[in-house]
């Protein structure tokens, strides 16, 4: 599946949610969409799935516009947080029944298997489910739809750690059995980073990074040592954060960390450590104030 996002703008009154965002995604990959609250993540996902028409710009999937294009939207599944279902007064099995009617590739057996693993009873009323169980229902509805593009927007709320790992295992299993595109949005970056092939970061409605996860990690490093040495070393480099303890200082550097960089640091007696996906994301997007 090929997703082409062109110059998206979305305004809500005076507020700008997306500002000229362009992005293209190709191939059957698991992609992580990272961004702080209010960065425009959910708005972007809503537009990709045709839930919303943008103020301007367009989304093309396999070359066709998405909005109101049934041929394309049938191949998409966006699950928002705990999932959109029928009325809350209905039972879990009703939600599955509607999904079976509306989803062309629906796999009811898979849905029932997943709900069983998450210990959600088919006979439960949706309104009586705990937040975690509702998330589990959302996960089941999303995975069993077997859509070419499955988007899970914070579909983990209320799930405890064992249930989240079950979710990750089932997601990976689904991806391996039937390779297709997944977009995952989550604040639990540390937990999901290992199985993300690509990462997309948006901040204040604009694209900040898009690329391979390893490539992303290789661009961030913490340089630690004597404060004066560190200051001299980072001159001319992009520093995204600093920490100081007595005479020791750590500077977080963003950019190409090549062998020349490492050798130089070594001669200067400085330690260089990788930041990891989560810390790098935090330093890149932390509030800067006005």
């Amino acid at each position: 599946m090929n997703i082409e996002i062109r110059n998206l703008h979305q305004r809500f009154g005076d507020a700008v949610a997306l500002n000229d965002l362009s992005l293209s995604i190709e191939g059957a990959k698991i992609i992580g969409l990272l961004g702080r609250n209010g960065s425009g993540k959910s708005t972007l996902l809503n537009i990709i799935a045709g839930f919303r028409k943008p103020t301007s710009g367009e989304v093309l999937i396999d070359g066709e516009p998405v909005f109101e294009n049934g041929r394309i939207t049938e191949r998409l599944a966006l699950i928002r947080e705990v999932g959109d279902t029928v009325e809350d007064s209905e039972k879990v099995e009703e939600a599955l029944r509607y999904a079976a009617y509306l989803r062309p590739n629906w796999n009811g057996e898979r849905a029932r298997y997943l709900l069983d693993r998450f210990e959600v009873s088919l006979k439960s009323k949706i309104s009586s489910l705990s937040r975690g169980r509702r998330s589990a229902l959302g996960i089941a509805l999303g995975l069993a739809a077997q859509a070419d593009l499955t988007i899970l927007d914070e579909t983990y709320l209320g799930l405890d750690a064992p249930s989240r790992y079950l979710f990750y295992d089932e997601l990976l299993q689904d991806y391996m059995n039937q390779p297709r595109t997944f977009i995952l949005s989550s604040h639990l970056i540390e937990e999901i980073a290992r199985f993300l092939e690509d990462i997309v970061i948006i901040d204040h409605g604009t694209l900040m990074f898009h690329g391979n996860t390893e490539q992303f990690v290789s661009q961030g490093a913490a340089v630690t040592g004597n404060a004066a040495d560190v200051d001299r070393f980072v001159q001319g480099k992009k520093v995204i954060g600093e920490l100081q303890l007595g005479r020791t200082k750590s500077a977080m550097v963003y950019g190409e960390i090549n062998s020349g960089f490492l050798e130089q640091a070594n001669t200067d007696g400085l330690d260089v450590e990788s930041l990891g996906v989560q810390d790098l994301f935090v330093y890149l997007t932390q509030p800067k104030g006005e």
Binding site: K29, I30, D169, L172, R194, F195, E197, T213
Partner: peptide
């Protein structure tokens, strides 16, 4: 690769 991916919970591409 799939068995490794499932065991370590990593992307099969890795």
């Amino acid at each position: 690769t799939n068995q490794y991916a499932a065991f370590y919970r990593i992307n099969p591409a890795t």
